[in-house]
Design a protein around this nucleic acid. Structure first.
Lengths: 156, 156
DNA sequence: TCCCTATCTCACGTTAACGTTACATATTTA
DNA sequence: TAAATATGTAACGTTAACGTGAGATAGGGA
């Protein structure tokens, strides 16, 4: 079915990654190409699609191990009900982790926005705890509500 | 104002991190404690709040360098308009990056759910491209719509 | 066929973010 | 005050995810 085969150099430039990375994923068992009789690696369109997913996940911070476990869904889901439940459980975990990550990122995002606004309203003083010239400093007043401000505020 | 001071061991257990990590952040200039005359590190409540933010960001994948740059907001926002604009620009970048990360994570999350559903509807066949026994295999039919399925599908 | 670029397989190098002794003080507890 | 813990500095070790040559074929165009 698939007619096109690509050599590793083409694959690398097509997906904007490095040859070493592709070979590394092969060492890790994530992407096994076919070979010419002489040993040159050949990648099909399927390989490209698979590699694209791997790169997406890697960029999001998934480790090789985590990607490998996600890839094992099919295998395990075919080997009886118990292991199938095990896989379902693992997937739930993954989804929960991702969900938590999203929540945490949204929180940080909001805090950065809030912090920016508060700081903008404090052009006069120097924003240090020892400052006496700005007793109602908005930064200090929001330290408890906007946790990220503690990073901006000088440590005592 | 702040009365409580904590030694490094207390801080580590309070924030569920390691002593080495705290000292490492100090080496990196992110969290500078005061010292007793003899040299023992002392951390105030402010230090704790600051460390908590650092740990949150680190857990989200922010590098030390990225955290440092966020912490520099205050400093730079006080040094004239040009650098202030520079900081604003950097913050926009950070927010865009976070936003993109959130979108990408949501996409993966949806794909995992979709993939799970599709695979569940394919208990019979072996899910490999060479399978002839399942010509209408739902996995193959969704390979283009649900990119993550390419990771689950055996590579040709 | 000659030449040049691409690929191959080792195998050592690199960076971030800590972990892990080792050995010397400091502090706390019995 | 002695013993048990905690903390200090210094420095080498560790892991993941590649980067970077070295030296030897392979493949494609003039």
């Amino acid at each position: 079915m698939e007619i096109n085969n690509y050599k590793i150099g083409e694959v690398a430039s097509k997906l904007a990654t490095s040859i070493r990375t592709i070979r590394y994923y092969e060492e890790e068992g994530l992407l096994i190409p076919t070979r010419t009789p002489r040993g040159t690696r050949l990648y099909s369109e399927n390989h490209l699609a698979r590699l694209h997913v791997i790169l997406r996940l890697a960029k999001l911070g998934f480790s090789i191990e985590a990607i490998r476990k996600i890839a094992e869904i099919r295998v395990d889901s075919q080997t009886g009900d118990e292991s199938s439940n095990h896989v379902e459980h693992h997937l739930e975990e993954v989804l929960n982790t991702i969900g938590g990550q999203i929540k945490a990122l949204e929180k940080v995002s909001h805090e950065i926005n809030d912090a920016r606004r508060v700081i903008a309203g404090c052009h006069g003083c120097s924003n240090t705890p020892s400052t006496q010239g700005c007793p109602d400093c908005p930064v200090r007043k929001n330290l408890n509500d906007i946790e990220l401000l503690n990073l901006v505020w000088d440590t005592e």
